[in-house]
Design a protein around this nucleic acid. Sequence first.
RNA 1: GCAGUUAUAGUACAGUCUGGUUAGUACUCGUGCUUGCCAAGUACGUGACCCGGGUUCAAAUCCCGGUAACUGCACCA
Length: 485
Amino acid sequence: MNYEEVMKLALERGFYFPSCEVYSDANAGFWEYGPSGVGLKNKFLELWRRELIRRDGMMEIDGSQIMSKSVFEASGHLGNFADPIIKCTKCNSTFRADRTIAEIANIEIPESADLDEFDYAIKENKIQCPKCKGDFSSTKKFNMMFKVGIGPQEEEAYLRPETCQSIFVDFPRLFKTMRGKLPLGIAQVGKSFRNEIAPRQSLLRLREFYQAEIEVFCNPNRLNEVEKFTEIENTIIRVQTDAEPVTMTCKEALESGTVPNKFVAYYLGILTEFYEKTGIDVTKSRFRKLGDKEKAFYAEVAFDFEVETTIGWLELVACNYRSDYDLSSHANKSKEKFEVMDNDEKVLPHVFEISMGIDRSLYTILEHSLKNDEEHERMVLSLKPYLSPVHVGILSLVKKDGLKEKTDEIFLNIKRKFDAFLDHSGAIGRRYRRLDEIGAPFAITVDHQTLEDNTVTIRKRDSMEQSRVDISKIDSILLESVAFP
RNA sequence: GCAGUUAUAGUACAGUCUGGUUAGUACUCGUGCUUGCCAAGUACGUGACCCGGGUUCAAAUCCCGGUAACUGCACCA
């Protein structure tokens, strides 16, 4: 299904919708999750915890969203997370100063250069607006971080532009108190904030968005000593270094040198296995190796995990080998020690990061799962049962003759164990269709026979097949069917 | 941020050009009846002109300004 169909479903069925929509000054780039969206998100994160955090023995933290100025001085975000921009005084178009100068005058000025340098180059080369030939204003820095003022003095602090900085600054304490041993994965789920110039396409480019980030701290001298590698050596991944993605096993990726070491290959493998279990079609995925110009300022090697959707390739996860960039920066700035012992060796750990965009992942799951079943004239959201916001609909065939009471009784017995949805009203077919659209894998219907022999029918979402089971079996059937893999 | 397009119920659309009665339709949603396993029928009901200003006796409709969404460009650590 395409973006429009997913959007319609999201609005009609409570997956997500614009923030503050009743007010006309609502800003672009902010969206909220409704009940169905929260259900899906929570279950997605539970799967993430199972498949990555627990599988690899990582620890999870929950840090502050507002962080002090020093953090971002050290991380480089105050210096580098800003683009030099110039604005045309005539038509108001905004351009990147470095790129415009490179394009027109063929002069390369690094983006981190002094602003004077850009102004000088623009003046010397008489560079004008490519659109209207107007003159440019002087160069300014546009920083994508939101600044906030703390306390009555409004002291300078920032909303985090990525969740991982808490992981870096917390690393010394966590390693000491939680009996850390390299390699050590530390994870965090939470919101990040970026003042995007042009937010677009609902969940796909937000100003306030969810990330699930993992930072794996490792000994850079032991990147090929990964025992767990055998678990994923035959897992198939798709890697793109040139024009087209190539399908290969993790072992082949390692041996061909496509992926630099066992350590990175292992995480690309378990990440792919995770996404396969979300129901995203991983044959439409790729790890795209980024060139030097595309990489973030802190990354040494970078792979973007991208998935093909109806609106093109979508970046869901950034995998960056950040080396010791972050820990040494924070060590220098804070004067704290970040080295740790790895057996007898004292090392400043390197970091491999798996930075997942949750909102984009949820969109992709919805797009890949939503099907138009033309034969039965219905939309079906074929979510994996363990990701569905509603596990089971509990329906009475009709309200009268005591069926309602019997249905209520069944609902009462299972509503704390499963995400169950009770519905008595309207035609039975309509109620099935509604459940199909929010991805409920099962519907249990109470009919007249139920009153005689204590059996109900269970309907499966995808096949629409029904079977009769004893009420006493409902628990165990559901337990097995909606369990995480 | 630039350009173009658009903005009417939960959703999709009509009406706007040519200002004028109670803003219409479909689906959805709620209640009743009916039926009794896949969006049926039937009756009733809830629900909307993006925001602000201007023109006018009168503005959903015309004008100006904002905001948002879509498309393209630019941007995307």
